[in-house]
């Protein structure tokens, strides 16, 4: 018994000493004066494997390495939880220029809903890469042929129209619809919104349980091709390119001056050093311009939307203000 206890103590003492003498970290400026990562880079996807953030991060890492844009090893780390909040607080605590993360509108919406203490201002936006847009679809045999007809009916009798989306009130699917509906003059407090997170939203639309489906353009494509649903409006500035997609009218061309971008880009830790920032900015520009990335965009139906740090900052602050107003009006913020 004594021997065993001794061994026990010894092991844990060893482990503890090892823990305390943690290795040095960080990066240095190389001889040429230009900043370069001296350690493997980690890109954090603040969600589990398989989703949009994870795919973007993994594909970016793949192209960076295969095309030789970045010489260092790049690992993708999943930090799911809290709708992204856990991943963000992980990066915030790391403060290493070798840790980046991928994000999209939830980085603005989750803190606005009071569910994360960090927002985009607590990080360094590096570059935006791609964009996706929202689409509002109804059944083929629905009585509405454009957004205005739909919104007119919603103004008359909001309780008769059910809007369904995959996420909860205050998050993307809901907010993109609310944003367009508000511009069209609908009382957004009366919109009947149902959230279905188990993948039943589209079937609920098809079988008549719900009337309007608010989602991303890609999700509506196949059903629209098959003529089962019609897309009344998309949230992009101009019509999108592509087979069938080009037939989707924008909200704007129907006289409703509202857009919603599901942007996706990369961020660094807070107060990232000037040199490191310009290094990454350059690399992401190279990535965005590469053919391999264009192919990936094509495959996943993502649209190109490159913004450098300055453009990104300006864009984000404008987006945040607009979303803030909507959340306030719905009094969803905490």
């Amino acid at each position: 018994m004594k021997k065993m206890a001794g061994a026990l103590v010894l092991t844990f003492v060893l482990v503890f000493t090892a823990a305390c003498s943690s290795s040095s970290s960080g990066s240095q400026e190389s001889d040429s004066g230009e900043w370069k990562p001296d350690k493997p880079i980690e890109i954090v996807a603040p969600a589990g494997p398989g989703g949009g953030w994870d795919t973007t991060a993994r594909m970016a890492a793949k192209v960076f390495e295969e095309e030789g844009i970045i010489q260092q090893d790049i690992g993708v780390i999943n930090k799911p939880g809290g709708g992204g909040a856990l991943g963000w607080s992980y990066i915030h605590s790391k403060k290493s220029p070798n840790s980046l993360f991928v994000s999209s509108p939830p980085l603005l919406l989750v803190p606005l809903n009071g569910q994360s203490q960090y927002t985009y201002e607590d990080f360094t936006p590096i570059a935006n890469m791609i964009a996706d847009y929202g689409a509002f679809a109804v059944r083929k045999d629905a009585k509405w042929d454009n957004l205005n007809e739909l919104f007119d009916d919603m103004k008359k009798d909001p309780s008769s129209i059910t809007v369904i989306g995959a996420s909860s009130p205050g998050s993307m699917d809901h907010i993109q619809f609310v944003k367009v509906a508000k511009k069209a003059g609908v009382d957004i407090k009366k919109i009947k919104y149902v959230s279905d997170q188990d993948g039943g939203a589209l079937t609920a639309l098809l079988n008549g349980s719900a009337d309007v489906y608010t989602t991303g353009v890609a999700e509506t494509l196949e059903q629209a091709k098959a003529g089962k649903i019609k897309v009344l409006g998309v949230t992009s500035e101009e019509r999108l390119d592509g087979d069938v997609v080009s037939t989707f009218p924008t909200a704007k061309e129907q006289g409703i001056d509202a857009t919603f971008v599901n942007w996706r880009g990369f961020f660094g830790p807070p107060n990232m050093d000037e040199a490191a920032l310009s290094y990454y900015e350059k690399k992401f520009k190279e990535l965005s311009d590469s053919e391999a990335w264009a192919e990936i965009r094509e495959k996943y139906g993502w649209k190109e939307m490159y913004m450098d740090h300055d453009e990104y900052m300006e864009f984000l602050s404008k987006e945040k203000d607009e979303l803030q107003k909507l959340i306030d009006e719905l009094s969803l913020g905490k």
Binding site: M4, A7, T11, F12, V15, A18, A19
Partner: peptide, 25 residues
Amino acid sequence: LYIFLLERVGFILVTTCFIFVCSWF
């Protein structure tokens, strides 16, 4: 203790100690 040290010391070291000590114990 294993959980507490997992991220601080690293997977390989802690797991090695844990399996050995726990089995012995």
